[in-house]
Structure formats: structure tokens, C-alpha cells
Amino acid sequence: EISLAHNGVLFLDELPEFSRQVLEVMRQPLEDRKITIARAKYSIEYPAGVMLVASMNPCPCGYYNHPEKECICSPGTIQRYLGKISGPLLDRIDIQVEIVPVPFEKISDTRPAESSESIRQRVIAAREIQAARFADYPGIYCNAQMTTRLLNRFAVPDEAGLKRLKDAMNRFHLSARAYDRILKVARTIADLEGSEGVQVQHINEAVNYRNLDRENWGDR
């Protein structure tokens, strides 16, 4: 399934309902963008350059951390449920967003929002920036594919951004892999704004997109 989704989206609904063994097998393909099937007499590689999108409830009943409804799950049940998603797997997911219930006032708001066409144009412009940036680097087409060497060249934040990133790493006990992911997302946010450099506001937004791999997320 991972290879069938090559160059496309692999969507996993209700992520903790998959067995932990299955989820852990995904770690290396997500990192290497290929999957290896090894047998006694031969080994075969399949391409696996996917965009992973996953969704999950915060607990089996769905109301953990709900602002109005009470969760009926025991603490042990919640920990076992969330424990199926390991830290190393979360490290490989660039953007992690906790969705809270939308209040009626927001649902009934009739003010016009940014159109999909406008967003599409910004994404196309950002992709063109990245295509030009990596024109001299075969096999690299977008920020998500940057190596550490390329990060050090194209995604170095300004002084205030570096300080904010250091504070986030220490405060939330983030890993070195999460550090790289934050820089890649921040570089993309900067591209969407048409900014040549990665600034502190881009780092702030990228840090806010890493909700679930913070050490204390499941203890609130």
C-alpha cells in the first residue's frame, strides 16, 4: 500500500486502530522514500515517496481534552490508545494539528474567507520557488526532501528565529529529527509568503504545528 501511494497521498484514518507493529514498519520507508522487501534469496526495493496524512481521535470515546463533554475513558485506556503512536513515528510527521470543536459562532460566520483558487496560486508560486532553488540538485524537488546540508544552506533562521527554536526544543523536549522538520516547514511557510529568509514568525508557526510529539501532550 505504501508503494502504491508513491508520488501521491497515503491516508490512514483512525491511526491508533492499526497495530503498532504495522505502524512501526512505516518509519523507515517514510524516511528513505523507498521500501525494501528482503527474502532469503533476493531483496527488492519499491518506491515509496508518499505524503502521509493520518487522522485519529484523542481517545477511544473521542472526548479527551474536549472543552465541554467529559471523557469516559480511564487514564490507562488513554495511555494505551495514544501509546500505539510512537515518538519516532511522530517525528517523521511534519505537521501535527490538534483540532478542537468549532463553536456555532464560527460555523455561522458569513464573512468571506480566502478562496481555494487564491490558496492554490500561492502554493503554485511556492512550488516554483522551490523548483528554482533545487534546480542544481538532482532528485530534490521540494523542501521536504532537503538533506541536513541543504537545510544549513537554505533554511537558516534569523537570530530571533534561532532563539525561538532553541526555546521550543528545550521546553518541549523535541528530538533532533523534529528540529529538521520544523526548519523544513518554516522554510515552506516563508516560501508561501514570498520571503527570501526564514524569520522568527515562520519558526513560531512551524513550532505550533508540532502538537502531538511534545513530551507532556498525553498528560494534560
Rank of each mutant, 00 (worst) to 15 (best):
N7Y: 09
N7P: 07
G8L: 01
G8F: 05
V9C: 11
L10W: 04
D13H: 02
L15W: 07
P16V: 08
F18V: 05
S19R: 06
Q21W: 00
V25W: 02
R27D: 07
L30F: 07
E31F: 03
D32Q: 06
K34Q: 14
I35C: 02
T36F: 04
I37Y: 13
A40R: 03
Y42V: 11
I44W: 11
P47T: 02
A48I: 02
V53S: 02
A54K: 03
S55K: 09
S55W: 06
C59I: 02
P60L: 12
C61A: 09
Y63W: 11
H66Q: 02
E70W: 01
I72C: 11
C73W: 04
I78Q: 06
R80V: 03
R80P: 07
Y81F: 14
G83L: 09
K84I: 01
L89N: 03
L90H: 09
D91K: 04
I99K: 04
V100L: 14
P101L: 10
K106I: 04
K106E: 15
I107G: 01
S108A: 14
D109H: 10
D109Y: 02
E114N: 00
S116D: 13
I119H: 04
Q121T: 13
Q121G: 00
Q121S: 15
A126T: 09
A126R: 06
R127Y: 00
I129K: 14
A131F: 05
A132Y: 04
F134V: 10
F134Q: 08
Y137H: 07
G139N: 11
I140E: 09
I140G: 05
N143E: 10
Q145H: 10
Q145L: 12
Q145D: 08
T147K: 04
R149A: 14
D158N: 13
A160R: 14
A160E: 15
G161L: 03
L162M: 15
L165P: 12
K166S: 14
N170I: 00
R171Y: 14
R171A: 11
F172H: 15
F172R: 01
H173N: 12
R177F: 06
A178D: 07
Y179I: 10
L183M: 13
L183N: 13
K184I: 02
A186I: 09
I189F: 15
I189E: 11
A190N: 11
D191M: 12
D191P: 09
L192N: 13
G194A: 06
S195W: 04
G197F: 13
V198H: 06
V198N: 07
Q199C: 02
N208L: 12
R210M: 07
L212H: 05
W217D: 03
R220Q: 13
